[in-house]
Design a protein around this nucleic acid. Structure first.
Length: 231
DNA sequence: CACCAGGCAAGTA
DNA sequence: TACTTGCATGGT
């Protein structure tokens, strides 16, 4: 399976190129984005983050000082603004109260310990915690989301129970714990799904379908993909 | 008009 | 444990 996943990764990378995830200039911006993008399109999240930047609110102290109601108004475009405002405040409160408001103070913690800490925070579940660990804190944790599961199911790569932990284990038990690999792989799967694997069962137009189903090897089908993508 | 988008928590059985 | 529901904007 390592070889198979390796082939898939290489094929996706050749097709899409590096994704340069996560978009965000600072670690706090990545963390804020991870919370705001819960069940929400990234486009709407960008608007909310732009608002925060314009008001100089992408700062732990500033967010901690701001009221829930005020923050909700600023992040309105990202949807679920009342719950997300509460969730952002929850994270910032922990950082402020327990880590002197400095994200760098999280660096001394082990990954497993840090994951437990994040999961105890109101509004941070499995995917958000792992997105923060991987994309903001550079820890080798594989992020699972709806796309990841759809990708595995559509291409017949996985037959587990589909729970978050089981899907995550599937990747982490078959791949070396490399932060860049996990970063790029997840982003590439998202890219593939957003363009081709939009539903279950597999989209027939997926350029990698035959490769993934084992009928072919190498990068067949990629040329078509590149043509469509460059246009 | 309906449906979806890089989830999570709280409630129910 | 395994479902169901509320949360809400903006794009297709």
């Amino acid at each position: 399976m390592l070889q198979r996943l390796s082939n898939i990764f290489n094929a996706l990378l050749a097709a899409f190129g590096k994704r340069h995830w996560w978009p965000g200039e600072t670690r706090l911006e990545v963390i804020v984005g991870a919370i705001l993008t819960q069940n929400t399109s990234w486009k709407n999240v960008e608007k909310a983050i732009d608002n925060l930047k314009a008001m100089n609110l992408l700062d732990v102290g500033a967010l901690h000082a701001l009221s829930m109601e005020q923050l909700a108004k600023v992040i309105r475009p990202s949807g679920f603004y009342n719950v997300k405002s509460k969730r952002l405040k929850s994270f910032v409160k922990v950082l402020h109260d327990e880590f002197s408001g400095a994200i760098s103070n999280l660096d001394v913690l082990g990954t497993a310990e840090l994951r437990k800490l994040l999961l105890r925070i109101e509004g941070i579940g499995n995917e958000t915690a792992d997105s923060i660990l991987l994309y903001a804190l550079n820890r080798p944790i594989f992020v699972v989301d709806a796309y990841t599961k759809r990708f595995l199911v559509n291409h017949g790569l996985y037959t587990g129970d589909g729970t978050y932990d089981d899907v995550q284990s599937f990747f982490m038990e078959h791949l070396p714990p490399d932060t860049y690999l996990f970063n790029e792989f997840h982003a590439l799967i998202v890219c593939l799904c957003q363009n081709y694997c939009r539903k279950v069962p597999a989209c027939a137009a997926c350029p990698l379908r035959e490769d993934l189903n084992g009928h072919k090897n190498g990068l067949s089908g990629i040329e078509n993909y590149l043509d469509r993508f460059s246009s």
